[in-house]
Each structure stands twice: as structure tokens, then as C-alpha cells.
């Protein structure tokens, strides 16, 4: 199974192996193994959460939530999916749940509303384009956002992203394609001046 992010080398493979073993031990009730697993992945979880929700406070909360979920779910972990794929899925689901809970649909990047307004008012174009782009990605429909962030933010291959999202590679590519169209429109939208 192509669980490993394509971008990563054999070193990660060894570690994935290791994660696998740890997770299995944890699933059998080994507390230390579980603790090591969380300790090792906390930063990753936090990073993913932050990338998706764009707010450090939320990322802390989500990371905690994920840690608890892992504790609850690890007992039935059967190891057929790569650990990192599983982790991604849990983090993404947690992010999604939280965003749904927090906003009518999704809680988007906090800053974006303000940013968009500022842009719309035609001032302060100095913001880092990457940050702007990332903020815009946060406003995409869920699946498109996930696809873009997994592939371009996290550096996963289309296949690995497809595994995380539970869709086919083709669907991932399609989402990314759609996302690009939307992003293009969005990045330009504030500048359309009508009169």
C-alpha cells in the first residue's frame, strides 16, 4: 500500500515501520508505547491542525482532541492502514468536525475575513502571497481544501492523499484542478472593481 508520502525517503519508511509496531503494542494496551507514539507525533498533529484551521489556539485544541481520539481508537487499530494515513484521517476528521461545530458550515481561517475585507478595500497589498494563498485555500470547499493541503502543503503524493481522503487518485487530481480554478477567481475577486 502506498501509505508513505512519496516525498519522503526510506528513513521515514523505517519510522513508519516503527510507528506501526508501537501502535500495535499500544493497541494491546501498552501504555508506554502509546505515550511514545503521542509524544512523537504531537508536533505533526499540531502542524496539520494548524495548516487546516489557521489558528494556533484551535490547533492546540484539535491536537488535544486528536490525542484523546487516538487513545480511544488505538485499541481497535488493526494495522492495515499505514499509521500516518490513519493519523491524517483522524486529524482531518477532527478539524472538520470542529469547524462544522464552530461555524454554520466550517470555521475558516480566522484572519481571512478581515484580510479579504482589507484586500477588497484596496489597501495593504504587502501581505506575503503564500499566506494569502493559504488563507484563500482555507475557504475552499472541504474536499478541495483537503486535497490541496495534503498534496501541496504536506507534500503527499496524489496516491497517499487519496488514501487519506478515502477517494481515488483521479478524484484528488480533480479536486485540485477545481481548487485551482476557484483560487484563481478568489485571488482576483477583490480586485474586480465594478462601476
Amino acid at each position: 500500500m502506498t501509505m508513505r508520502p512519496d516525498a519522503n525517503g526510506p528513513e521515514t519508511a523505517a519510522r513508519e515501520e516503527d510507528d506501526h509496531a508501537l501502535a500495535l503494542r499500544a493497541s494491546h494496551g501498552d501504555r508506554d508505547a502509546f505515550a511514545r507514539l503521542i509524544d512523537r507525533h504531537y508536533a505533526t498533529i499540531h502542524r496539520i491542525a494548524w495548516r487546516w484551521c489557521g489558528n494556533a489556539g484551535d490547533a492546540d485544541d484539535i491536537a488535544q482532541e486528536v490525542a484523546i481520539k487516538l487513545a480511544r481508537a488505538i485499541g481497535s487499530w488493526r494495522g492495515e492502514a499505514g499509521f500516518s494515513t490513519w493519523l491524517y484521517r483522524i486529524v482531518l476528521n477532527t478539524v472538520r468536525d470542529r469547524q462544522r461545530a464552530l461555524a454554520a458550515e466550517r470555521r475558516r481561517v480566522e484572519a481571512f475575513a478581515v484580510q479579504a475585507l482589507v484586500d477588497a478595500q484596496g489597501s495593504d497589498e504587502s501581505t506575503d502571497p503564500a499566506t494569502r494563498l493559504w488563507a484563500a485555500v482555507g475557504t475552499l470547499p472541504e474536499r478541495q481544501r483537503d486535497a490541496v493541503l495534503l498534496v501541496h502543503g504536506e507534500g503527499l503524493g496524489h496516491g497517499a492523499a487519496a488514501d487519506v481522503m478515502g477517494v481515488s487518485e483521479g478524484t484528488v487530481s480533480f479536486h485540485i484542478h477545481e481548487a485551482k480554478k476557484k483560487l484563481r477567481a478568489m485571488m482576483q475577486a477583490p480586485e474586480d472593481e465594478l462601476s
Binding site: 505515550a35 503521542i38 504531537y42 491536537a63 488535544q64 490525542a67 487516538l70 487513545a71
Partner: peptide, 8 residues
């Protein structure tokens, strides 16, 4: 988070 996870 760690504490919560271990509790869980």
C-alpha cells in the same frame, strides 16, 4: 493533551 490522552 498528553495527560488527557493517557487518561483516555
Amino acid at each position: 493533551a498528553m495527560r488527557a490522552a493517557l487518561d483516555a
